[in-house]
Write a protein that binds this DNA or RNA. Structure first.
Lengths: 352, 352
DNA sequence: CTGAAAGCGCTTACAG
DNA sequence: CTGAAAGCGCTTACAG
């Protein structure tokens, strides 16, 4: 029977409430509440009876009522500039798996640009959702959202390697991609390349002079007293890697290139192929991330394996601890990504 | 001041409510409700005053209270077996963009397997969210969720090409991938290949004998009186395409292969490379979807362009119409995917 | 261990 | 055009 003044959707019967369960079990709705919340002080027999009725009637607690009455919602929302690029998609998957295991709902909220209005809107939407927030701050839009998130909101962020030791209260999670970039560059230098060029993902303004991957690359070059070429700005996608990579491919001086991610590397490989330059005989290429396609390209891509899936899990785990236990969340570095050498890197050609 | 019995999170001040706005504006909270809901019968001066206070106080309606009182929630949840594979990720992106434009929140709910328990759990979680539901039924888990979704739930599904004309009330959206597969196969046959092998994505039980892509492939072969080889079961990923593709690569009889998606094609290309078979000189390969990397492989992949982004938008649009307008949603086919010929297909080698 | 009361922040008819 | 009342389905102290 539809409740007066509260029309439901067509055909949607009013679902069973805590009161229906209470009546059927012969207890107060209050006791039902205790049972579904795992409150310890309920007589076992009572609990059993209530649970039986819950199962029989197919009762499900109203998320809205629970949220309104308790001020809590078992949910997290992932705020990100993009959901499809490999790293972000894998991170999202990690969050979802961990959230599912903890019976948390997951929402996504994309921040389209770094415009103040877009950032504010995204933050408003994310806050409206009412749960915890995981922000992917790998790019400018995400970083701005992180910086402008209201205090008091339960929040954890996936970030680049911090440029300096972060404040103890920074709820940040990262893998040491700066160090990984340095090692990748050293690998190339060790192969006899005079220098290494860098095909860049977009950098955030916080890190003046490029992303932390760029910083690690520069560091290795400087330490080895190698020339530091101007980074070539690309983007995130194969198309952008190709477009920017053509310049590199046309320059006979480049013999080794570190790419900001594997999709960029894919585009560069194509540009090199079109230019008639062989990999790794003429040019060595290193990617970043170890996306699913990296191992199956021809030549198979030497790249740095990053466990975004784990980053996602950890972000959720820490947020969960913050929400349920009030455990303060500080900065947290995961294991350093590891260089996986495959076919796209080789010794520098002897000087002609 | 914390309300007795309703502790908020640490440091989270009680946010401004409709009553605070009402007091500040000198009206009843009821009138504020009318203003935020765009009710027409409000005096312009009153409306202006209320809106000014709303802006000044930074009022945001409580999602939970709104949902509880109205029985509606401006949200959709995407139910899918996977969020990272290209087609699904692009579809999700389309949904998110359309939802954002309509001020709807979007949740994701993954159904891990086709086990009855997993399907039921996913459906429960999706239903708890309270809004509309978009199910991606490209695989068995998704399909079962679709079949078992409770009646009365606002729902739209992205499906494979239906095997037969669907019932008028089926809220399905698809692109004609069966026909696209047929055309791709005909393209290969037209190049002089005796037959075309099929490297298969997983099929759903509903479509006995393989997915609709397989059906289209078989159709073309049959019409041309070509032999119909056994499809080679692979999966969705490059790794699976590679593993299954090795068998194809080792068989000198295969000169043309249609792949269920571009990732499979990528793996196959690698297997062919390792086996020393040239593409397209020795073997022609066609992918499916036109994922971002397809055009940048070497050889660039001939593939069938599918607009999953648009599928996502359309799914949301129809669901939105259903929720807000009660517009009934029937089956809906989008434009047929188009074959994009690039470098991975060529004339059959003349018989040795 | 269990129940009666009050309240979360909104919306919905119903009056006026 | 606007307000007073009731209710959405829960949870939270407070009694007992």
């Amino acid at each position: 029977m539809p409740v007066a003044g509260h029309p439901r959707g067509p055909g949607a019967p009013r679902s069973v409430s805590i009161r229906d369960v209470a009546n059927a079990a012969g207890v107060s709705h209050q006791t039902v509440s205790r049972v579904i919340n795992g409150h310890p002080r309920v007589r076992p027999a009572t609990r059993a009876r209530v649970e039986a009725v819950i199962a029989e009637l197919g009762f499900r607690r109203s998320v809205a009522a629970h949220a309104l009455a308790s001020g809590r919602t078992r949910s997290v929302t992932v705020l990100t500039a993009n959901t499809t690029h490999y790293g972000r998609a894998a991170l999202l998957r990690g969050v979802e798996e961990a959230a599912r295991a903890a019976s948390y709902a997951v929402g996504i909220c994309v921040v389209e640009s770094e415009e103040p209005r877009a950032v504010r809107d995204a933050l408003d939407r994310a806050t409206d959702a009412g749960g915890g927030l995981i922000v992917i701050a790998y790019d400018e839009p995400g970083l701005r959202a992180l910086e402008q998130a209201p205090a008091g909101l339960p929040l954890v962020a996936a970030v680049e390697t911090p440029a300096a030791a972060p404040p103890a209260a920074s709820p940040w999670v990262w893998t040491d991609d700066r160090r990984a970039a340095r090692e990748a560059t050293e690998h190339l230098l060790g192969l006899g390349h005079r220098t290494v060029h860098y095909l860049a993902i977009p950098s955030t303004t916080r890190s003046r002079g490029g992303s932390q991957r760029a910083a690690g690359w520069r560091e290795a070059l400087t330490r080895a007293s190698a020339a530091v070429p101007e980074p070539v700005a690309a983007g995130w996608t194969p198309a952008e890697g190709y477009a920017a990579g053509r310049r590199l491919a046309a320059d006979p001086g480049v013999t080794a290139v570190l790419c900001g991610n594997d999709d960029l590397a894919l585009g560069l490989l194509r540009a090199l192929h079109e230019a008639g330059r062989r990999v790794p005989e003429d040019v060595s290429v290193v990617g970043f991330d170890d996306a699913p396609h990296a191992a199956y390209l021809a030549p198979a891509l030497t790249t740095v394996r990053q466990d975004f899936h784990e980053v996602g899990r950890v972000c959720f785990g820490r947020l969960h601890g913050l929400i349920e236990g009030g455990a303060p969340v500080g900065p947290h570095a995961l294991a350093t990504p590891r260089l996986t050498v495959r076919e796209s890197t080789g010794p520098a050609a002897p000087p002609a």
